[in-house]
Design a protein around this nucleic acid. Structure first.
Length: 743
DNA sequence: AGCACGCCGACT
DNA sequence: GTCGGCGTGCTC
């Protein structure tokens, strides 16, 4: 029997939603086996790719029952040891299925079992050495070979076959012959050419220079820097100078931006500064293109990688710095599949590699500011606008007693009129698309609500439909009430669609540009609109959160923020942080370049503390105030939260499942008095989630809150294996969410 | 996740 | 009597 031959036991990660590794046998003679290599493994009645995690180990399973690996897929590890460490940390920290976490770190092409991998190494030919007699002999006997040799000789560093082919199309035979004569040799380029790095950068101003120097000081050591710079203060330029320094030292930089931040503008700017030294990982890449970029970065052929969330897992040769722009942005948090926060993963990675990491934003997250308060992170400020522009004035406009026309107070309308008269642009931020958010019957009180969600349907008049913004379901709007047949159907509230219509009547002849998911179907649409705005013609721009970030609009002098009140009393613990961030981000769009800007925030609660403090423009003050509130209520970051979520076709099923989980947790929590855990961890719920019914499924949650994170972790570490063992039906889904975004 | 297995309804 | 529906459970 084959198992009597010499073997060793090895542990493999498989891309499966299970919390353990799988044990297989590999030949003892496979000396080359290394953690990080992929193997093809027999799995039930098929084959799967497995990643070798540990060799020469033992198994709890009877060796007779273990199977031999089928074959090795890689000669070299595909996952470096430090990324293996990072994945192991992630699986444990975020309580996610270990195999899925490991495979998340690999490009899609490497997750599948078949596919030949393109060779990305850059090979160049160099002349070895040649003496005069040989040269004469070559010129006389093989003129073409001599010609090719001369081409190669002209380059100081050597040339790749593709480049030679451009000068001498059919060069392959000559190259072969020259190689045979040992006149030329092929070498593999394993690093970018620093001599060619001449980034086209602007000179830093005093304040930027100071920040840049302070950050540079921590080169080569782990340090988290927060760069709090107001809109237009030139954060990107500071990033670029830091990147340039890394390149000069032959080091690499990962530069992460939020999904919405990876705009053609930023790509152009990065390419202009670093040319083809920068790899850009955008969503349009195919699996093969993505693999190529990944491989080039791993080989160290390019020093800069600009990408979104998932680029945090890029393999590197010599990483020197990680930059995260718009650090507070929620798109760094992956919500589906593996749950993680790219910012926190990046910080962990920087720590493992002992390199600095820079988090830049105008409005740092409260988690980060709390870490500054605790002296874990270093805070740097940029308070001056580049190009002399002034920070916009923020005015709180009390509308509690005002009559609104098209959702705007008379005073706001007047201000818009004035700006338009002066040839300026006005931006109106309204984070609600559609025509009206509420449709109801005046006669019987019927409301248009979604069949599949706990939500009201939004009226979209252009298509004469009611649309649910949560599940996308649509229904026709009838003239008569479906409940009482009355014709007295009314709509309430204002969305961007209605705002556009009303403003076009109010400001006849003025161009109105609406930017929301209904008017922007793709990136191209977005670009066209942005160019339209940048043309500078007087106009009104209406937009949802799509317009809040990272674009330069030179001619906007007035920004109006509508309908921000829901956030003040929403009960969501993060709402005020987000509102403050949004108002400052949006108002930052005003008055760039050489024009003074103003932002007007309409509110019915003008004396709310947040509204009062927002006029001071000082985000730090506002943030410290919100932090104080969080401290009083023991909300994160002053406590840590882990949420178990379940969803099923019936609410009861989801609740029952969470109850079972709760029992396990309680049992372990009360039994574990040795660690003194008992009582330190509150287990709340299970309760139906906010908007419990969504897309036809009912969601519930069970929250664990503690100010002792290590106690929380040890509880979960003990409980999770038991929870996994609980029987579940296929119709029920559950997940764990560590550091959830919303409670 | 995917696939096999198993236990009940409508078909040659 | 069987074909196949999908609900359940396991994978080294």
């Amino acid at each position: 029997m084959k198992k009597q031959s010499k073997y060793q036991i090895a542990k493999f990660a498989l891309e499966l939603p299970v919390y353990h590794l799988f044990d297989y046998l590999i030949e003892a003679s496979d000396e080359e086996a290394q953690a990080g290599q992929r193997y093809l493994l027999p799995f039930i009645s098929r084959f799967k790719v497995g990643l070798l995690i540990e060799k020469n180990t033992t198994s709890k399973i009877d060796p007779e029952k273990l199977r031999f690996v089928t074959k090795k897929l890689d000669q070299q590890p595909q996952l470096s040891s430090h990324l293996q460490q990072l994945a192991a940390w992630m699986a444990e920290y975020y309580l996610q299925a270990i195999g899925e976490v490991y495979f998340q770190c690999l490009p899609r092409l490497l997750r599948k079992k078949s596919s030949k991998l393109p060779d990305n190494r850059i090979k160049i030919w160099q002349v070895k050495e040649i003496n005069q007699p040989d040269r004469l002999k070559l010129r006389n006997k093989s003129l073409k070979q001599h010609e090719v040799l001369q081409i190669i000789e002209q380059s100081p560093t050597g040339l790749s076959q593709e480049v030679i082919r451009k000068i001498f199309p059919a060069c392959q035979t000559q190259i072969k012959a020259l190689e045979k004569k040992q006149l030329i040799k092929e070498i593999i380029i394993d690093r970018f050419d620093v001599t060619n790095v001449k980034p086209d950068l602007y000179q830093l101003q005093d304040e930027q220079q100071q920040v840049y120097q302070n950050i540079s000081k921590t080169d080569g050591q782990f340090c988290v820097h927060i760069l709090q710079g107001i809109t237009g203060s030139g954060k990107t330029e500071v990033y670029f100078h830091l990147i340039k320094d890394q390149i000069r030292q032959n080091k690499q930089v990962i530069y992460l931006v939020p999904e919405i931040g990876l705009t053609p503008q930023l790509i152009k700017r990065t390419s202009r500064a670093f040319g083809d030294l920068a790899l850009i990982s955008h969503s349009g890449l195919s699996d093969i293109q993505r693999y190529k970029a990944w491989d080039q970065f791993r080989l160290g052929l390019k020093p800069v990688l600009l990408g979104t969330r998932s680029s945090v897992f890029s393999e590197t040769k010599n990483l020197g710095l990680i930059i995260i722009d718009e650090e507070h942005d929620s798109s760094f948090r992956q919500q589906d599949g593996i749950r993680y926060h790219a910012r926190d993963v990046a910080i962990k990675r920087a720590q493992l590699l002992k390199i600095p990491i820079l988090l830049g934003t105008a409005t740092p997250s409260l988690e980060s500011l709390n870490n500054v308060n605790k002296l874990h992170y270093r805070l740097h400020h940029l308070n001056q606008r580049q190009g002399g522009g002034q920070t916009p004035i923020i005015q709180i406009l009390d509308i509690s007693k005002s009559y609104l026309q098209a959702g705007l107070a008379a005073e706001l309308i007047e201000q818009i009129r004035q700006q338009l008269k002066q040839g300026n642009q006005v931006l109106i931020y309204l984070n609600r698309r559609g025509f009206a958010p509420v449709v109801h019957c005046h006669e019987c009180g019927w409301m248009a609500s979604c069949q599949q969600c706990d939500a009201k349907m939004t009226l979209h008049q252009s298509v004469n439909q009611l649309i649910c913004h949560h599940c996308g379901s649509r229904s026709q709007l009838f003239a008569r009430c479906p409940s009482c047949n009355s014709g007295d159907i009314k709509h309430y509230g204002i969305g961007t669609e209605q705002l556009e219509l009303s403003l076009s009547e109010l400001f006849e002849g003025v161009d109105i540009i609406r930017i929301d998911r209904d008017t922007i179907k793709n990136k191209n649409d977005f670009e066209t609109r942005l160019q339209q705005i940048q043309s500078g013609k007087a106009a009104i721009i209406i937009g949802t959160q799509m317009i809040a970030k990272g674009h330069d609009y030179a001619n906007i002098t007035l920004v109006a923020v509508l309908e921000s009140d829901q956030a003040l009393y929403s009960g969501q613990y993060r709402a005020s942080e987000r509102l403050a961030q949004t108002i400052l981000q949006v108002s930052g769009r005003a008055g760039r370049a050489n024009k003074v800007g103003k932002a007007i925030v309409q509110t019915r609660f003008a004396d709310h503390p947040l509204m009062l403090s927002i006029t001071t423009q000082d985000y730090s003050d506002i943030a410290q105030q919100i932090l104080l509130e969080r401290k009083q209520f023991a909300f994160p970051p002053y406590s840590r939260v882990v949420i178990f979520r379940a969803d099923a076709t019936e609410l009861e099923k989801a609740i029952n499942k969470l109850d079972e989980i709760k029992k396990v947790l309680q049992q372990i929590n009360s039994g574990d008095r040795t660690n003194g855990n008992s009582g330190k961890i509150s287990i709340l719920g299970p309760v139906p989630a906010i908007m419990s019914k969504r897309i036809g499924r009912y969601r519930a949650q069970l929250s664990l809150i503690s100010n002792d994170f290590s106690a929380l972790r040890s509880l979960l570490k003990m409980a999770l294996p038991e929870i996994v063992k609980l029987k579940i039906s296929k119709q029920l889904k559950w997940q764990v969410d560590v550091d959830p975004f919303d409670l």
